[in-house]
Each structure stands twice: as structure tokens, then as C-alpha cells.
Design a protein around this nucleic acid. Structure first.
Length: 648
DNA sequence: ATTCGGACGGCC
DNA sequence: GCCGTCCGAATT
């Protein structure tokens, strides 16, 4: 009787034309340690390389003598078969290779950590505490029941943005986790950044017990990262917390992936093949039949698309209940497109902003959200302020640096269109105004008796007390206020809106809602004032606290313009010749009409190819085939392929 | 006839 | 990527 003696190995070699498993003979002395998921060394193309054993089988279909495994690095199973499947799915979705994706999924080995006695992980406490957040939402209780009974529900929770339990995203995630863990399955909780992770970690320690779960993040060094990874892979913990890189964490018997704020741009992996954690989570939910929950104050256009095809269940309050629970939001135009120049025109606070701050300070801290300048400025109609879009491809136009009347240029297809506003017919374009409030000193002068707290990227403040203070923050780093802010003012809305980016409106609304979520509800006199053009769709959505309606309309716009998530879009970037060849092949094989190429930095160009969703798989497959051809024929020049990139 | 080198294609 | 092989041209 012949024992299983063949190892199917994923060799660490990111060449697209060699992106498949290779078989190796397992020598007798390695038979015990060469287990599925372990790291091995093999000889490939005459060179020693790393790899992972995907499977151990009895026979190979290779028509040649198998090379032997050279070495089993260790018998530790670091790439479980189901994670290997997810890695393959992600690689296929993004026209990438298994080797590239597995590097994102499995952290580098740390030998000392692996051989050391593992720390003691006490069992999870799953307190029998009633869920107070999710049960307030329609379908929330049903969601919790499904998570507890292995039904693997998929949902997107649009939280009411308010500093009350009803709007507490941490509580919502802990409740979903608790239900799943009580039902006996493992949980993966994902957040976009380190500050959110610290807050979630503290709350989980309180609820489930310190040390009973792990936090998987690269920030604490390779040993800590690998220790946490091993605890999950060995099944020593059933709850894993983490940021982007933890989206692949090998939680055993996974019952739930919950992901907070999927619109945050940090979910996009900067390394090839540039997967987005939202997509990784969705692919895992499909393959692993686990629950999936997106949590946020905003609704991303992507998750709305999943709702529309009945793949996700929407969970949100009816709009009347939401408005009743949250702060009252008003918009005040921060000045007409003023021709006035000089300091006075720039430093004048809109009256309503001033009064809102003054009224808020009487009752507690007031948040002032001030966006940083320096985005790539987009253009708007000079008369009606509708965002100026390229007539050829629908992408927002950017203004080339210069004085007023600067030539508009499309960064996607490269045309310099004769622009005319689709709404009002005007041909007058305008760039966004510079900020109304430039400095903290300016506001400090306006409210001289009030303490001023500043939080920004380089100097982050985590929380402030309940006493009156002016809290100035850039979007994304707002401190939490004890008991909630009495008021918030959102300045320079137009600056955020007028980026030459498809997602400008969505992104602005997401950031504003995050600020509103830190403010007390209307019944506690919480109020928010946003300074910007009240006619803008995103501002209207904020005033009505209706991110879902906004996402529905944005999605419809994307559909009309042929952009993701209603189309599949591939960007091809690299040397002119490589891009030209790639685009020609993609066009020939799929019939897709390319946009561009347009020059980008360093002598490189970028072209964009779009296809209807129905033929998206074919487009992605063709893009992979282009790379296979390139590397197999050793063509020179670089070619980066991105599927549905977050920004163009 | 023999050696050298560069291009090409397979890699388990 | 890297190596091995195959073929043509240069060298003896």
C-alpha cells in the first residue's frame, strides 16, 4: 500500500505564468512534518525557493519525475486550506497571483515565537448581557439570532450618527461578536486604523476578558504579529481584532467578519494586487459561509450595490426615528462665490456658525471640523456649482494650475473638453474657494475665554472632557467627547466636495457623519452646522441624515457614467509601450473601449478599460492573460494592473 | 569540428 | 527570475 507521498506546493514566485501549484515528492524523513499549510523549501527552476504545502495527495498528474521537497521549514500549519482558497479567490478577483496575495495573508515567520511556549489565553467570557444597540434597529434582533445559530447572515448596518448607545459602533460590533461566539463560532472584527483598534480592544477586554482574544497588527513588531497570528491559526483564540492586514486572519470555524467604516481609504492595500478589505471580507463570506457585517455611519456605494442585488440585508432606522435620535443639522452657505479679495473676505465666519459655536459652548465642548487643504482641486460650474464632469467619460474634471479660467483636464481619458454645464448650460468654471477659517488663532480670538484643543494628523487627541472647549480637528482624527459634543460645525464643506475624484461627495459625507456621530442627540440639544453650498447633494444628505438615499443616487450616477461598482474598471499603468500593448490586447479580446492613456509621474502612463459587470470576469481574465504573456515572453517595462482602484 | 553566446521556453 | 538547450556564427 502506497502512503500519500506527493505535496502540492504553492511556490513563492510571483510570475503570472507560473501561478499554479507544483507537485513535489515527499521524502520519507519529511513525511511526518510535510502537512497541509506548512512552509517548505523546494527546488524550482534550479533554485531553492520558499513555498506552502497546499495539500498532500497520493499521485501527481505531472508527466515527469517529481523533485523532492528539500526541507520542511516547520510543521506549523500557517496556511489553512480554506485561507488558501480565499487567497486564490482574491488573486483571481484582482488579476493577481497567489504568491502576491499569500504574502498579505501570512505574516513573515518568527522562529523564536513559533518554538516558544505560547502565552496563556484564558477562555472568552461571553456575558449574558442584553444587546442594547442592534435590537433598536429593524432586523437587528433577527441578525443577532442568525449569527448565534450558524445561518451566516450578511448585512450592512447604517448606524444613527449620534453620541448615544444607539450610535455606538463599538457596541454594535461587540454585540454581533458576542452573539456569534455564544453560538460557538469564531469572530473577526476589522477596523480601519490604530486609534479605532485601541478603542475596540479596550471594549473587548472589558466584555470578553483581557487576553482572551488577540489583536493582529503589524504595528507592534514582527514577533507580536506572528504570536497573534499563531494563536488564531492554532485555534487558541476564537476572537481576532485587527486592521487591513487581518482581513485574512485564520480564525477557526469562522462565524462572522464585521468591518467598521468600509468607505475609509485605508482598506485599500497598497501592494499588488491592491485588494480592498471590503472585497476580501465579501469573498471570505462566500467561500467560508460565514456571517458578514459592514458597520458604519455612512453607506458606501459598494455596499449599496450589494444591497441592490440582494446580497446584503440593509439594517437602518427609519428616517424619522433617525432624525429624532440625532443632532439637528443645518447648512449655511459660507458666502456667495465672492469676487471680494483681501483678509476680510477670508476670515469672516458665517453668522450661523458663530452663533452655533456660542450656543454650544454654553452646554459643553464644541467640535470644529476643518479640512486640510491640498486635495487635488476639482472644478464646479460657476453658476450652479454642479461638479464639472468630463463629457467623454464622466469622471470629475481637474483644473490645471493657473489663474481663473484655468483649462480643465480629465485625468482619466486625457481630453481637454470644451466644457458646458449639463445642468444650467453655463460655460463658466470655478475652482473651490480657499478655507473660510484658516487657523486656530482666528477662532481662539473669536472666543477668547474658551480653552482650545487641537487634534490633527501629527498631533492626535483621543478624547476630551465634558466641559466647554473649542475642539479643532481635521477629518478622521476628531477626539471623542465625554457625554458627546454639544455642537459641531463643519467648515469648508465645498473644499471637501470639490475634489476631482469620483468619491468626493461620498467621502465628504462619510467624514461629516463621523463628526455628527460624536454629537449629542436633538433631545439633548445637540446641533450641527455645516458651512457650504446647501444645494450640494452630499450636504442635503447630511441635513436629512440620509446616507442611504445618497448612496442610492450616487450608485445610479455611477451606473450611468459606467464606473464601479456598476461596471468593472481596470487601470493599466506603466511604460508607454507596455500600456499600449496591454490596452490593444484587452480591446481586441473583450471589445472594451479604452480611456487614455494619460501621463502620470516618472515617464509612465495610465489607461483605463471598462466593462459591464456581466463581462467583468472576462475583462479581469484578459488582464491576467496580458501579464502572463508579458512575463512568459520576457517583455521589458513595468505594468501595474488594478481592478476597481479606489482612486484614479 | 569545436566552442561560444545569446535567445527562447520550461520550470513539478 | 534562472537554467538548460538549441542554433548560428566565429574560431581552430
Amino acid at each position: 500500500m502506497v502512503e500519500p507521498r506527493v505535496a502540492r506546493v504553492a511556490v513563492d514566485m510571483p510570475l503570472p505564468h507560473l501561478d499554479r501549484p507544483f507537485d513535489y515528492a515527499i521524502p520519507d524523513d519529511l513525511a511526518a512534518t510535510a502537512v497541509p499549510g506548512c512552509r517548505v523549501k523546494v527546488r524550482f527552476a534550479g533554485r531553492q525557493r520558499d513555498g506552502y504545502v497546499l495539500d498532500v495527495v497520493t499521485a501527481s498528474d505531472a508527466d515527469r519525475e517529481l523533485s523532492p521537497l528539500l526541507k520542511v521549514v516547520s510543521a506549523e500549519r500557517v496556511l489553512h486550506p480554506e485561507i488558501a482558497g480565499v487567497v486564490r479567490d482574491v488573486a483571481d478577483h484582482y488579476a493577481g497571483t497567489f504568491a502576491d496575495v499569500v504574502r498579505l495573508a501570512v505574516p513573515p515567520r518568527h522562529g523564536m515565537t513559533e518554538t516558544a511556549e505560547p502565552p496563556d489565553y484564558p477562555p472568552l467570557r461571553t456575558p449574558d448581557r442584553a444587546a442594547v444597540v442592534l435590537c433598536e434597529y429593524p432586523r437587528g434582533a433577527a441578525l443577532l439570532r442568525a449569527l448565534a445559530t450558524e445561518v451566516a447572515p450578511r448585512a450592512t448596518l447604517c448606524l444613527a450618527p449620534v453620541a448615544r448607545p444607539l450610535g455606538n459602533w463599538i457596541e454594535a460590533m461587540v454585540e454581533a461578536a458576542s452573539a456569534t461566539l455564544t453560538g460557538g463560532r469564531g469572530v473577526l472584527l476589522l477596523v480601519p486604523d490604530a486609534a479605532d483598534l485601541a478603542r475596540l480592544e479596550a471594549r473587548c477586554a472589558e466584555s470578553f476578558g483581557r487576553g482572551s482574544f488577540v489583536t493582529l497588527t503589524a504595528e507592534k513588531g514582527p514577533a507580536a504579529r506572528y504570536r497573534a497570528f499563531l494563536a488564531a491559526a492554532r485555534g487558541q483564540v476564537r476572537l481576532v481584532l485587527g486592521t487591513r492586514a487581518a482581513a485574512f486572519a485564520p480564525v477557526l470555524d469562522l462565524g462572522l467578519i464585521a468591518l467598521f467604516d468600509d468607505g475609509d481609504d485605508s482598506w485599500a492595500e497598497p501592494r499588488a494586487p491592491y485588494p480592498h478589505a471590503r472585497v476580501v471580507a465579501a469573498l471570505r463570506a462566500t467561500r467560508q459561509h460565514c456571517g458578514l457585517l459592514y458597520v458604519g455611519y455612512a453607506r458606501s456605494v459598494e455596499t449599496q450595490a450589494m444591497v441592490d442585488r440582494d446580497w446584503l440585508v440593509p439594517v437602518e432606522l427609519p428616517s424619522a426615528a433617525r432624525r429624532e435620535a440625532c443632532a439637528v443639522v443645518r447648512a449655511t452657505d459660507d458666502g456667495a462665490p465672492s469676487s471680494g479679495r483681501g483678509p476680510a473676505a477670508h476670515s469672516r465666519l458665517p453668522h450661523e456658525v458663530f452663533t452655533a459655536i456660542r450656543a454650544g459652548l454654553a452646554r459643553g465642548p464644541v467640535l470644529v471640523q476643518v479640512p486640510r487643504a491640498g486635495y487635488l482641486a476639482g472644478l464646479a460650474c460657476g453658476r450652479c456649482r454642479t461638479v464639472a464632469r468630463c463629457a467623454a467619460c464622466g469622471h470629475p474634471l481637474a483644473g490645471e494650475r493657473g489663474d481663473r479660467g484655468a483649462a480643465p483636464v480629465c485625468r482619466v481619458c486625457g481630453v481637454r473638453p470644451e466644457w458646458r454645464c449639463a445642468e444650467c448650460g453655463s460655460t463658466e468654471l470655478r475652482a473651490p474657494r480657499v478655507g473660510v477659517v484658516r487657523t486656530a488663532e482666528e477662532l481662539g480670538r473669536a472666543f477668547p475665554q474658551t480653552p482650545v484643543v487641537q487634534s490633527s494628523g501629527d498631533h492626535r487627541v483621543d478624547r476630551v472632557g465634558a466641559e466647554p472647549a473649542l475642539v479643532l480637528a481635521t477629518p478622521g482624527v476628531e477626539p471623542i467627547a465625554e457625554g458627546g459634543y454639544a455642537a459641531a460645525v463643519l467648515l469648508d464643506a465645498e473644499l471637501l466636495l470639490a475634489r476631482a475624484d469620483l468619491r468626493a461627495g461620498e467621502e465628504a459625507l462619510r467624514r461629516w457623519l463621523a463628526a455628527v456621530a460624536l454629537v449629542r442627540g436633538a433631545s439633548d440639544d445637540g446641533s450641527v452646522v455645516i458651512a457650504g453650498p446647501a444645494s450640494a447633494r452630499a450636504i442635503q444628505a447630511l441635513v436629512r441624515l440620509d446616507p442611504v438615499g445618497f448612496a442610492v443616487r450616487e450608485l445610479a450616477d455611477r451606473g450611468e457614467a459606467g464606473f464601479p461598482p456598476m461596471s468593472r474598471l481596470i487601470s493599466v499603468e506603466g511604460s508607454g509601450q507596455a500600456v499600449e500593448d496591454a490596452v490593444r490586447i484587452l480591446q481586441a479580446e473583450t471589445g472594451a473601449v479604452p480611456l487614455g492613456p494619460v501621463p502620470v509621474a516618472d515617464d509612465e502612463v495610465r489607461a483605463t478599460v471598462r466593462a459591464a459587470l456581466a463581462s467583468g470576469r472576462a475583462l479581469v481574465a484578459a488582464a491576467k492573460a496580458v501579464q502572463v504573456r508579458r512575463t512568459a515572453h520576457k517583455e521589458d517595462g513595468l505594468l501595474r494592473v488594478r481592478v476597481d482602484p479606489a482612486v484614479l
